[in-house]
Amino acid sequence: MPNENLSFPIGTIFTVKKYYKKLSFSEILGKHKKRGRNINSLMEALLSYKLTENQSITKAATWINREEVLDTFNLDSFEQRTLYRVLKLIGENREEIIADVQTMIFNTFDFKHININMDWTSFILYDDKCPSGKHSYSHDYQPGKEQITAGISKIFSPINVPIGMTVHEGNVERPDSLR
């Protein structure tokens, strides 16, 4: 029977809030946006969504813009473009943010080892608006599409904490991205 019940994962939300506080994300992100909407409430909500359904930013905005979810994050309803603006701001300040997050992670946890896995993957872009998109060799047989390559480094098992991420134009040769 259809009903008006609403479900969302409160456990995931508590976990996001706990680690957001533990790793001082409020200070790390808050310094980049002091006016307007609270960047930290929006990011807590977005992280909770991405750890739950992990679909588009448009769908994230719809997911968050429900009364009960908004209450959980002390947010007022907002327009979809607000999330894009926040992500743009984070992207513009990514170097400093990643460095701050890394420092916080290493100051918070006493890792028994710092052995890492590194890997890269390329993404096809179905639009030409991304400044980092570039035509290059396509493993997916789509030479007409622009691509970007993302690389990630993580401390390997049993720690499994990501500590670095890079984005390169096009489908770069992996060795060249190892700088």
Binding site: N117, M118, S153, R174
Partner: peptide
């Protein structure tokens, strides 16, 4: 090693990657 990560590695840290690099 990516510049973001280099400063955090210890001497004798192991770096694992696939065959392309």
């Amino acid at each position: 090693i990516p510049y973001q990560v280099k400063d955090f590695l210890r001497e004798d840290s192991i770096v694992v990657f696939d065959r392309e690099p």
